[in-house]
């Protein structure tokens, strides 16, 4: 299925994510039709595009939440489009944060952060708790450790969700419109958190409609439409001199 992918030793100077000719369909309907993309370690990649263009699906392919019909995705040199893929091993390296937070409602903020390291990585509970408290402090949630998700605002919940992903110690973070469900005031506090992550050299792939954020923090911007990448480049070029009419139209609508 994936012949030329016997990359055994990955080094950080190679792309941490390398996507080649990726095709993804739901039944008859092709959602992604030939995506190529490569992400270097420490990069912040922003993916923009109209609704239904396949942005979420692209991110889901990267941590194998959905399977791929054709093409290749290498994460740290490891092929994802292969039948014997160890999905759990992959997901330990790749964190994902969702638009709807998806916190576990029956657990406190602290427990939400601690659960996966304790249950999945079998790490020592006391040590995990220590780290979880530090992570919650890092996303500015000191004092909210024992609050249940239902008692937190949207922005606070989203920051818990980010801390929860970080607790697994991922090498790569995927953000799928994580600020889309928030009101403008709380968008900022979540973006600040992601910006700090980027400054700590975390590799991030974000689907976002926050153009200001993409311009300031992004290293590379991709514009997708109907399952293809129409145009991409560093934000300085992308936002000022987009060539494709579809990109220009999209930007004129959103800016």
């Amino acid at each position: 299925m994936a012949p030329d992918t016997a990359v055994t030793s990955w080094t950080p100077d190679q792309p941490i994510v390398k996507i080649t000719d990726l095709h993804k369909s739901f039944g008859e309907f092709e959602v992604l039709s030939g995506i190529d993309m490569s992400v270097m370690k420490g990069d912040v990649v922003c993916i923009i595009g109209p609704s239904g263009s396949g942005k979420s699906t692209l991110l889901r392919c990267v941590n194998a939440l959905v399977d791929i019909q054709k093409g290749s995705i290498l994460v740290e040199g490891q092929e994802i489009n292969t039948p014997g893929l160890d999905k759990l091993a992959l997901r330990r390296k790749v964190g994902m944060v969702f638009q709807q937070y998806n916190l576990f409602p029956h657990k406190t903020a602290l427990q939400n952060v601690m659960m996966a390291p304790v249950m999945v990585l079998k790490q020592d509970k006391a040590e995990v708790e220590d780290r979880a408290r530090k992570l919650l402090a890092k996303v500015r949630l000191v004092g909210k450790e024992d609050a249940y998700p239902g008692e937190l605002s949207g922005g606070q919940q989203q920051r818990v969700a980010i801390a929860r992903s970080l607790a697994m110690g991922p090498d790569l973070m995927l953000f799928d419109e994580v600020t889309a469900a928030l009101d403008p005031e709380t968008v900022k506090e979540v973006l600040v958190t992601i910006r700090e992550l980027a400054e700590d050299n975390m590799t991030c792939m974000l689907v976002t409609h926050e153009m200001g954020f993409a311009r300031e923090v992004g290293d590379h911007v991709y514009f997708t439409d109907q399952g293809r990448i129409i145009e991409h480049g560093p934000p300085s070029d992308f936002f000022t001199s987009a060539k494709d009419p579809r990109t220009r139209e999209f930007l004129s609508q959103i800016l």
Partner: peptide
């Protein structure tokens, strides 16, 4: 239970059994 709960626990590398019984 909303599908987001499955997705988020899968993306945290929980096994299916752990997802069902703990989440």
């Amino acid at each position: 239970v909303p599908s987001g709960q499955w997705e988020s626990s899968e993306s945290l590398a929980f096994s299916r059994r752990q997802t069902i019984f703990s989440i």
